[in-house]
């Protein structure tokens, strides 16, 4: 049995090497350039809104929150129009990392599972990806707060 397992492992290793040779290489440079352009552009739009809100006399933190809200709306709206997944196809992380990507990850599953009802479809699926993000965000924030409380 041991010999058989060993043989199986060797076969697996050999096969993984073969697959890596055949598999098309991920176009890392191209992907990075696109991510840079798309992600940069989204942040540029955010900056324009930020400056508009600051110009209207909002405080810095308030203006930042208003900008985030605006960008969330844009991300959600473009997902509804069926445009954000096209941006994502080219932009990769450039469309995932900005807060618009967070909005996309909320709308996409919720919209698609609407037929499963408003509680288990839309309601539950809103948080398919946003859920883990919020869970870990809240955890780390509370942890930082507690550590800060202990060491200050």
């Amino acid at each position: 049995m041991n010999l058989e397992q060993q043989r199986q492992q060797e076969m697996q290793k050999e096969y993984h090497v073969l697959v890596e040779q055949i598999k098309p290489k991920t176009r890392v440079l191209r992907n990075c350039i696109l991510a840079f352009l798309v992600g940069g552009f989204i942040c540029l739009i955010g900056q324009i809104f930020l400056q508009i809100y600051l110009g209207q006399g909002m405080g810095e933190r308030e203006a930042a929150a208003a900008t985030a809200t605006t960008m969330v709306f844009l991300g959600a709206f473009l997902t509804g129009l069926g445009i954000y997944d096209v941006i994502g196809k080219y932009g990769g992380a450039g469309s995932i990392v900005p807060i618009t990507g967070f909005a996309n990850s909320i709308v996409a599953p919720a919209m698609e599972f609407k037929r499963e009802g408003f509680v288990f479809g839309v309601g539950a699926r809103l948080f398919t990806i946003a859920g883990p993000v919020l869970v870990y965000g809240f955890l780390i924030s509370a942890l930082i707060g507690i550590i800060f409380y202990l060491i200050r």
């Binding site: 991920t26 997902t79 069926g82 954000y84 196809k89 990850s105």
Partner: peptide, 17 residues
């Protein structure tokens, strides 16, 4: 796609493989 991977409107990059 939605059973095995992601919702179709999710902005993701499909690997070449």
């Amino acid at each position: 796609e939605r059973q095995y991977r992601f919702p179709t409107e999710q902005g993701i990059q499909r690997p070449l493989s």
